[in-house]
């Protein structure tokens, strides 16, 4: 799971102007910590779908699954299987 988490973190650092020194914990909210807004989430979702060749079903598009590094990583692992 670590490579996926690092990949998402790299994406955030490269594409969201996130401070590279920020200490983002696995369960920290991306939307409540000034990292993502709804447009950013849509871009991140596009990136994930393309990179991991998955589709995110509508019922999985929730803050529980998509608002933290851990949630996104779990979601990808679940959908890639």
């Amino acid at each position: 799971m670590e490579p996926i988490k690092n990949d998402i973190l790299d994406y955030l650092k490269d594409n969201s102007f996130m401070d590279t020194n920020i200490g983002l914990e696995d369960n920290d909210s991306l939307t409540q910590n000034g990292i993502m807004d709804s447009i950013g989430l849509l871009e991140l979702m596009d990136y994930i779908c393309e990179k991991y060749a998955i589709e995110v079903p509508e019922d999985m598009l929730t803050p529980e699954n998509f608002d933290s590094l851990q949630g996104i990583t779990n979601l990808i692992v679940k959908l890639v299987k």
């Binding site: 594409n15 102007f17 996130m18 401070d19 939307t31 000034g34 993502m36 807004d37 447009i39 950013g40």
Partner: peptide, 11 residues
């Protein structure tokens, strides 16, 4: 200040 995320401030 900082009501919107950093990326939004560039948009």
């Amino acid at each position: 200040r900082d009501a919107f995320p950093r990326l939004a401030k560039y948009r």
